[in-house]
Structures are given as structure tokens and as C-alpha cells.
Amino acid sequence: MTETSIGASSAVVAAPPATSRPAAFSGSFVPRLLTGLVILLSWEIVVRAVAPPYVAKPSTVVLAIPRVMTDPEFLRALGATLAAVTEGLAITIVAGTAIGLLMGRSAIVDRMIRVYINGFNALPMIIVLPLFSLWFGYSGAARIGTIIFAAIFAITMNVADGARSVPREFLEVARSFRSGRWRMLTDIVLPASMPYLLAGFRLAAGRALIGAVVAEFFLSIGGLGYYILYNSRAYHHNEAFVGVLLLAAFGVSFELLVNWCTRHFMPWYRRGA
């Protein structure tokens, strides 16, 4: 992934050498495909040889994809999970970044809350579910709460690190041009911390997804997690696996989204200052 994004991001200066991108692409594509095929094949063989017929195997999962993808119940579940993850992540990014910036730039704030952030970050997120279900009921709010709890510390800690390591020259220039403290935060510290924020977002997005699924398992509220749980228990393993595949696809698309954002909004990143 890395080689591809570096090659492509030079498009701003001049067209990159025509060969760089396809070469990097095919260079990692063939091995990747090979690994995938080996895994699928072994899976298929083992299940056919030793498992009862209702156990999912690649050939039957593939057949289940069109059926599941057009199932309104599945689409509702998908929509519910995606909406919750999006909402939770939006809140997480805004709140997590704000707290992280304050922590990074203010020694007092840092001293006040660092220990708690670290403590909460170390908690297994599932531990809060009994509490959240008491506070918010068996509801979407408890799910959002779990998502935020699962994701926010990754953003906060990364942004705090980023804000703390803003090059001194930048702050000196800002001071020389008489920037106010608040302007400095939004104008200098935040953009300088963007790479850290994106790294935090990568982690946070994965954790948010886990948080949503775990909450759905535990709270039995509609969503992809519950869909997978329900179908596994009903011996609809193939249907459950389509859900799992889709979750994996989310993971990949988050990664692609972050890479695209980096290239598009931060062409300056990875090129030194």
C-alpha cells in the first residue's frame, strides 16, 4: 500500500513516471492474490473433507452473496451499523481532536487528564457495556456510546502526541507574526498534527467497527453484528459469513479512504517541510 501511495502523490508536481504505479500495483497484487487463493482453497478442502454440510465454505458463501445482499433485513442491519459507526466516528473525531489538542499544548490539561485517558484506553471496551445498557437502555444510544468509548482514546492520544511535537520553528513564526494562542491552535497546531490525526483515525475506525459489533452482540439491537450472531446461531453460516466479509471490506475501505484523503488534502505530507 505504501509504495502505491507515494508514487501516486507526486502527481501534483509533475506526472509520475508512467510505469511506477502499475509496477508497484502488480508487484504486490500477484502475491496478494496468491495468498488469498491458497487460504480459500485450503478452507474449501478442509470443510468438504471433515465438516458437516451446514458449515460455511467459500463456494457456498459466494452463492449466498446475491441472496444476502438483496435481503431487506440484511440491508436494514447494514444501514443501522453504518449509520451508528459514522455518527460515532464523527463525534469521536471532533471531541477526540479537541481534547488531544488541549492535552498536547497545555501542560496543565495534560497533567489533569492523561492518567485517566491512559486508564480508560487500557480498559477492554466490553467492560462498559453493562453500564451503558443501564444508562442508555438496550438502544442505539448505548451502541453509539460504546463506539465512542472504543474509538476516542486512539484519536486523543495521537493528536496529543502530534500537538506536542509541532516543530518549534512553526510556533516561533506564528508568534513573530503575532498570532493569538487560539489562532495558533487552529491555524498551526491542528494542521501540523494532521498526520497524527490520520494515524489515530486509522486505529479509531477499526475500533469503532468492533465497538458497534460488540454492542450489537451484547444488546441484541439490529445491526450487522446482530445479523451475524443471529444467523450463526440459526446455522445459517453462509449468511453470517457474508456479513463478516462485509465487515472486512469496511476495514479495507477505511484504509483506502485515509490514503485518498492523505493524497488529496495533504499533498505536502511525507515530503519533508
Binding site: E169, E172, S176, P191, A192, M194, W268
Partner: peptide, 18 residues
């Protein structure tokens, strides 16, 4: 502290990369 009417050019340029 820094006052209006005085501006500095830095050895390290001090441009904001973003």
C-alpha cells in the same frame, strides 16, 4: 513581545508546508 511594524525572515524559511 512581538510588535506590529517589525517582521522577521528566518534562516529555516519557516514556511508552513500545508
Amino acid at each position: 513581545e512581538p510588535i506590529a511594524g517589525v517582521a522577521m525572515v528566518f534562516q529555516h524559511f519557516g514556511l508552513f508546508p500545508w
